[in-house]
Design a protein around this nucleic acid. Structure first.
Ligand SMILES: [Zn+2]
Ligand SMILES: [Zn+2]
Ligand SMILES: [Zn+2]
Ligand SMILES: [Zn+2]
Lengths: 137, 137
DNA sequence: ATAAACCTTAGAGTTAGATACAAGGTCAAT
DNA sequence: ATTGACCTTGTATCTAACTCTAAGGTTTAT
């Protein structure tokens, strides 16, 4: 049985974050002490570990909510349900990767074209590229 | 001379966005009509084009602010100043790319391990991986 | 002349995920 | 008994980049 501060320390997060997760229906402590203190048991801890691990692979809290509702009632779900969540996230991340890769290429070509020297920016090819109405993004 | 709605249409953005840019010091119309209407001239339009193009290569509005203050007073800056902005952004984007690539790999291996079939999620390897305290992120 | 479409301002709301603060109750040690 | 560390609740604040609402003035077309 851990108090909120102990659980927070154990996972290197803030107590505020645990209260935030509780308010948003992700993780409520199984019990409250007579004093009203939150008390987390091993199952709560496992659930938090699940949440943090899902977060670390890129799921949003909303998506973790979905994963949790499956996790907590596995028998009513099938593999396809779970895999769909993961695959949707995968697509989303691949879309972001594509976008960032385009950014990177654009910036790299801007950077390459600029001498980076100590002379006036009046001739700077980066600024020219951003100004010029004839050069498309 | 374009009114706010015309300029917005021309660049496929909202009038709200133009007012927002103005409030945040990015782009104010050169003149106001007698009726108080914003009137944008060719220079304003060029500036907006600059802003949108910078946005499209991944700069934040704050960073665009910096770029603009250089662009509008080029003679007091040198190429190195400009290139530094671009290169910092490049580093930032490469960091994000790295992070997303890790997410992608994690999700891909989760996805690969799951049969995705119509049988109960009780044995789902995705959920197991997220539960299991012995598997690290 | 009247309705539709446009413009003005100031200010509030949205999203995600926290993070901070205020006012107070509780617990352990001295 | 008093400090200091911890806990409670509720509310407010932050970032980014818009987006929307309200209440009203202007233009254009019929
Ligand atoms: Zn140069
Ligand atoms: Zn240059
Ligand atoms: Zn399966
Ligand atoms: Zn599965």
């Amino acid at each position: 049985m851990l108090k909120i501060g102990q659980l927070a320390d154990k996972f290197a997060i803030k107590t505020d974050t645990l209260r935030f997760y509780e308010k948003h229906g992700l993780l409520a402590p199984s019990i409250r002490g007579a004093n009203g203190y939150r008390l987390y048991n091993d199952k709560d801890e496992a659930k938090l570990r699940f949440i943090l691990r899902a977060k670390s692979v890129g799921f949003s809290l909303n998506e973790i909510h979905e994963l949790l509702s499956i996790e907590l009632d596995k028998s009513h779900w099938v593999c396809a349900d779970v895999k769909t969540l993961v695959d949707n996230k995968l697509l989303e991340i691949q879309k972001k990767l594509l976008e960032l890769t385009k950014f990177e290429a654009s910036l790299q070509s801007l950077s390459n074209a600029c001498c980076g020297g100590p002379d006036s920016a009046e001739h700077c090819s980066i600024l020219e590229a951003l100004e010029d109405p004839h050069v498309d993004k």
